[in-house]
Amino acid sequence: MNSLYKRNCLRLLDFQTYEVKHIINVARILKSAKKNKREIKYLKNKKIVLIFEKESTRTRCAFEVAAFDQGANVTYLGPGSTHLGYKESIRDTARVLSRMYNGIQYRGHSHHAIETLAQYSEVPVWNGLTERFHPTQILADLLTIQETLPLRKCLSDIKFAYVGDVRNNIGYTLLEAAALFGFDLRLVSPSQFWPKLTFFLKCREQAQKNNGNIICTENIEDGVKNVDFIYSDVWISMGEPETKWKTHINLLKKYQVNSKMLNLTKNSNTKVLHCLPAFHDKDTIMGKKIIKNNNLKFGIEITNQVFESNSKIIFEQSENRLHTIKALMITSLTQNFFL
Rank of each mutant, 00 (worst) to 15 (best):
R7Y: 05
E88Y: 14
N45K: 13
W235P: 00
N294M: 15
P190N: 12
H280C: 03
C275P: 11
Q119Y: 13
V96G: 04
A118E: 01
A67V: 09
Q317E: 15
P195F: 02
V224P: 00
E221D: 11
C154S: 14
L30W: 02
N45G: 07
R321G: 05
L77R: 07
Y120W: 09
D281Y: 05
A118C: 09
I215K: 03
V123G: 02
N2W: 04
T334I: 15
E308C: 06
E64C: 06
A113Q: 03
R95V: 10
R321T: 04
L129D: 01
R186W: 05
F315H: 14
F199S: 12
L262R: 01
F193V: 14
K326Q: 15
K209A: 14
F52H: 06
I325V: 15
S32D: 08
I170T: 08
K244M: 15
K41S: 13
H134A: 08
S318M: 11
N304Y: 03
N168K: 07
I114T: 05
E88P: 04
F307S: 00
R60I: 13
A327L: 10
N73H: 15
I170F: 03
G80H: 06
T173D: 01
E205K: 08
W126V: 15
F338Y: 13
E53G: 05
R11S: 06
E301S: 03
G80V: 14
L197H: 08
G85H: 05
I145H: 01
W245R: 04
L77T: 12
A327S: 10
T303Q: 07
G299W: 06
T130A: 02
R99L: 13
N263T: 07
T130I: 03
T331D: 02
G164K: 01
L117S: 03
E319M: 13
V26L: 06
E205I: 12
G239S: 11
T82W: 09
E122Q: 13
I214H: 00
A72S: 07
Q317S: 07
A33W: 04
I291D: 12
T265Q: 00
N8E: 01
I51V: 11
Y76S: 13
K260C: 09
K244Y: 15
E147V: 09
F15Q: 03
T324C: 12
V123L: 02
R152M: 09
L139G: 00
C203L: 05
S81I: 13
N320C: 09
A140C: 11
L139R: 01
Q105P: 07
R204D: 06
A118Q: 02
W245C: 01
S156E: 04
Q256H: 00
K297Y: 08
L143N: 02
F68D: 14
I114K: 00
C275G: 04
I48T: 06
P241H: 14
R132H: 09
I158C: 01
L77Q: 02
T93N: 06
E53C: 11
E122F: 11
K54M: 09
